[in-house]
């Protein structure tokens, strides 16, 4: 139910955006993320963008995963 998938914004139009994932384009609602811009990656849930994906923070998670690997090896 709370499944959400990352997509990239390719067009912005008022409360709507056109997003793309694996070459498939879809029109979605931006009510929850009004400030998101073209080029941003957003998480899509039931036709609405619900969260902005953050590249820097993703890197932080990868670093943590590396730390786990080091500790367990």
């Amino acid at each position: 139910m709370c499944l959400a998938i990352p997509t990239k914004i390719v067009e912005r139009d008022g409360s709507d955006a056109l997003v793309e994932m694996n070459g498939v384009r879809q029109r979605i609602r931006m009510d929850l993320l009004p400030a998101a811009r073209v080029g941003d990656y957003v998480l899509l849930h039931a036709g609405f963008a619900i969260a902005l994906l953050n590249e820097e923070e993703a890197q932080e998670t990868l670093d943590l995963l590396r730390e786990v690997e080091v500790l367990s090896s």
Binding site: D31, L33, A51
Partner: peptide
Amino acid sequence: IAYRRVVRAEGNRTA
């Protein structure tokens, strides 16, 4: 938070 690429401590204020 182990899901920082999506979750911020304050959440989504607009939502």
